[in-house]
């Protein structure tokens, strides 16, 4: 019984890694790896909004981040703006809004450490269920929209000329990415979310240049990092999220040394 929280925590870290690793190759190829960090910051305003209004934290934050990520997609397309610039604007505004809302609720003490690193040791059965559902949702989405995502990532304008349903794929991609970030943010924190969106695919593409093998290698990398990082955090008594990121970084260095560009 004493070890059930350890099993929950390890399972949560692995499931979280798989969820984000499924998206990692697409995020990396689209060069929107900053999206993880940006949406995590945007979530801050959603969290503040939930605290101030007393609404459910997870649901309010998810709706807020999904809404903002869709706004980024729609505004960038409609006004032909650089997506990176639009994201940065919404990031700053959301942080400003979050800080303003938190300061209004003076009685609330913000836990920065939990926001940055999450807290895998407090993973509940409910968290594991939502992570499992999310993992199947992600895998199902990629399976169903594989060719649309592939060509959307290659060149959206050309894909549109060839009548490939990129708009639907893109909006669903942004919504799911936002949901992934919000759910994982609570469990693993902003730093691990960002790392798990970039590092698995960066390592995978060093090893194999094709997309399907890269997705599989991404998942294996994330699982290995979650397990390895978890073990190290247990042995050296350091925060689990940080240990996973450091373990994954070592794998990244190894991939640089062992595999040609």
């Amino acid at each position: 019984m004493i070890y059930s929280f350890v099993i929950f925590a390890l399972s949560g870290a692995i499931l979280s890694g798989i969820c984000l690793a499924l998206f990692s190759p697409f995020v990396t190829l689209r060069k929107i790896s900053y999206m993880g960090e940006a949406l995590s910051h945007i979530a801050f305003a959603g969290i503040a909004l939930a605290i101030l209004s007393g609404l459910n934290l997870q649901i309010t934050t998810t709706i807020f981040v999904v809404f903002i990520s869709l706004m980024i997609g729609i505004l960038s397309r409609k006004f032909k703006l650089e997506e990176a610039n639009t994201i940065t604007i919404f990031l700053s505004v959301s942080m400003a809004l979050g800080i303003t809302l938190i300061s209004i609720k003076r009685s609330y003490v913000f836990d920065l450490s939990s926001y940055l690193f999450g807290n895998v040791l407090f993973i509940s059965k409910g968290d594991l269920i939502s992570l499992s559902i999310l993992m199947f949702l992600n895998a199902g989405f990629i399976w169903l929209f594989f060719k649309e995502l592939f060509y959307l990532t290659y060149n959206q304008e050309i894909a549109r000329v060839y009548r490939i349903k990129t708009d639907l794929a893109n909006y669903l991609f942004l919504i799911l990415l936002a949901v992934n970030i919000v759910i994982n943010l609570k469990i693993t924190g902003i730093i691990l979310v960002t790392a798990q969106l970039i590092l698995p695919a960066t390592i995978a593409f060093r090893i194999n240049k094709r997309l399907i093998p890269a997705i599989i290698i991404s998942i294996l990398t994330a699982v290995l990092s979650a397990a390895g990082g978890f073990y190290l955090s247990w042995i050296f008594n350091v925060p689990t999220g940080a240990a996973i990121v450091l373990f994954e970084f070592v794998l990244y260095l190894l991939s640089l040394l062992l595999f040609k560009s």
Binding site: L29, F145, K147, I158, Y162, R163, I164
Partner: peptide, 25 residues
């Protein structure tokens, strides 16, 4: 405009011209 490191073969790019004729999934 494309990324020279994009993991597509010549065949993948040609198949793009046929993608609209296939339903989702």
């Amino acid at each position: 405009i494309y990324d020279r490191h994009f993991p597509a073969t010549a065949l993948d790019i040609v198949l793009m011209g046929l993608a609209a004729s296939l339903p989702l999934g």
